[in-house]
Nucleic acid binder design. Sequence first.
RNA 1: GCCCAGGUGGCGGAAGGGUAGACGCGGCGGACUUAAAAUCCGCUCUCCCUAAAAGAGGUGUGGGUUCGAAUCCCUCCCUGGGCACCA
Length: 839
Amino acid sequence: MTNNYNDTKLSWESPEQMTADNNEHVYSPRFLDKKWQDRWTKDGLHSVDDNDPRPKWYELTMFPYPSGDLHIGHWYAMAPSDAHARFRKMQGYNVLHPMGFDAFGLPAENAAIKRGIHPYEWTMSNIENMRGQLKSMGTIYDWDREIICALPEYYRWNQWFFLQFYKAGLAYRAHAPANWCPSCQTVLANEQVIDGNCERCDTEVSRRDLEQWFLRITKYAEELLDFSGLLDWPERIKAMQSNWIGRSEGTHISFDISHCGLEEVELRTFTTRIDTIYGVTFVVLAPEHPLVDKLTAPEKAKEVKAYVEQARRQTEIERLSADKEKTGVFIGSYCVNRLNGEKVPIFIADYALLSYGTGIVMGVPAHDTRDFAFAQKFDLPVKVVIAPDNWNGNELEEAHIENGTQVNSGQFDGLTSDHGKDAIADYIEGQGWGERTVSYRIRDWLISRQRYWGTPIPIIYCDRCGIVPVSEDMLPVLLPEDAQFRPTGESPLRYNEGFLNTSCPACGGMAKRETDTMDTFVDSSWYHMRYTSPSYHDAPIDPKTMAKWLPVDQYTGGAEHAVMHLLYSRFFNKAIRDIGLVDYDEPYLRLFNQGTIISQNAKMSKSRGNVINPDIYVDKLGADVVRGYIMFLGPWDQGGEWSDGGINGMARWFNRLWDIVTRDVETIMETPNPEKAERDLTRLLHKTIRRVEEDYSRFKFNTALAAMMELTNYMARAWDNNQVTKSSWTSTISNLLILLAPIAPHVTEELWERMGNEYSIHNQLMPDWDKDLAQDEEITLVVQVNGKVRDKIQVEASVSEDQAKSIATESEKVKPYLQGMDIRQLIYVPGKLVNIVVS
RNA sequence: GCCCAGGUGGCGGAAGGGUAGACGCGGCGGACUUAAAAUCCGCUCUCCCUAAAAGAGGUGUGGGUUCGAAUCCCUCCCUGGGCACCA
């Protein structure tokens, strides 16, 4: 059969040339995108009803920073999540799939410094533009629920949460060395320093001592390691969070310094290897440790001071480099190892970190690689206390860090080191010299930022009353509009007299406001909650909508947020739970991480010039083709490479689909065997339904599309071969359109209407598949001899084991391989194959 | 160094103990066209062979388990990500 494809194909012409008016059969994607987007908006098709009785499904994708342009990476994150949310909706859920803007942050302020545009103007006009681009994707976002973090009605609740944390002892101020990004002109949290560089701008960070506000995430270290409240999170993300939290079990053990005549009478160290306590030959303090001054002998003072200053100057990178040669200084005093009464010299060295454990390390060169290197450098004794198996008593070439037998360990000699650990810890606890404990690598979350475009921290400093929180009824503390944007290293708010000067809420006297603003990760820690009641005035969330929607059922986004946003948000949830604001333990029950879309073998970036602008493709090919192509690239979690050739393939398939759906069924001729034609097409349809729905639920859009392509390929062939019936044809195309609707909402809506169906396809339910109808009538029986395929035979699906075996052994192609052989075994796999084992 | 995730045609990728390479891109050949584009049809892992048929080989490497391994187990190599002087 020949088709006049010119009449029915999709046209990629502009809508001016091709409108639905001048030709019913020609479709312009650009025209149709707009036609249906307008219609859906007008009908409120995607507005979400809090009172809908259907089971709820809250599907969220990480909201974008309003950089001003929606690039292909945004599409890659958002189009598949939209398809998945649509799929859930078509499974009968009441779906909330909202969108908003992570609108505070540095680029807005940098634009102000560079170009004199106010951050508010810059941000809001970017949002305006991006909202339009987001709408062009054809997503089901309910724009009535949009949130913008930079607006006072949002950030006042950041301040409100901060005050609750302050009251609960979860927010505190401390003077501490902090990571300073000289380019961003602000401090950063530990999570925002990647390999010693700023997470945003990649500039090397330095250290700066400042008064800073912290949130006490360490209080939740143990609970954050417990992922049992999550339904489905990637193991990788859980591993990254576990790594970051860095739990290690060990013992606190103190060394006696009572002979020094100080107020302090002991040095507390943390060790995971208490079994090696008899091998201590030195103790190391972190250079910044407060006891350093007190313990330094006068004759060493100069040398120690020089070392401390040099250590402070070092950047994070220099200091943490593992291959760096050990440095340090003997400070001229000693402590006593209480277990054996030995006198132990005290050093300072920068490999001891003030912020981990107690800031003091017991040096056991025989059994720790770092201590070994230090001992070599300073010619300190290496005392073996854990004998390796078959140890001959010689000196060690390197540290023996594995297990062994306790030696030179007093009463513990002869125990295995495992037993030694327990016995020594018991003994120490009994003597009151220390106790078993757990140490974590994670530090409290530093939220102060010395920048303008963020949430003002609602704190007032009064000379008489000290630190005074702003009272709740005075919120929000508004960002002043008229700030001077100068990169001074201090918040621009400090130079704004009108903002800075205020009166003390306690005594009414003159006082000054905190001028730092909050890390923007505070905004994203609870934004998912605000979507449920974006304009609620009495609290961050309406308790009614909270109970209805939260927690989030499915969250999607990039893995780069594993130890930043995702960890902060989990902490935030647990903290506000303990304050009594929510009653669940985890904010995001299921998490799926999409990969990265690349182009020309590299991440897209302006400097590489390999950036793909989606608008051009949307304009030419329509949103559905771009959506479909992005989902067809490969498995969503593995990312993929953009190719222009590839997207044309997707456009071609939509073209063929359009052709198939718009064929006139009245021209179908009588087929010789209508029952068989009907059964065959129906069978493939039901197999396709099964595959597509399984694939959607696992985010395998690529194979779902492949299944639908196989179906259209079959249909085109069957039509040409006169092997279709009107009824199966019609029912197959309407089911196919429903299956495809989550990926391609516009084309399917248009074709659905053209078939004469009731508006809207997006209110249809996903079809069920029928096991019997999907059942094969014939199968290909594979016949192997010793595991090698020798024949493939079409047989009835109902074939019995005996029948299959005899068909296999009697195959003409197989017989030569059986000649003169003994059949040892016949393996039968029902519905699949027979393997004849011969020798 | 430790912990994850990967390695399959020219390319993106299917298959997660049972026909390796679905689906798509690219390529080749053909139809339509004055021609081109678009569209449609056919072929497209490698070797052997004039060709077909039939063989043989083939999923990073080397071993193992199994009637049968891309798939499970062990060794090593490579790629990407995370942690790393954390005591």
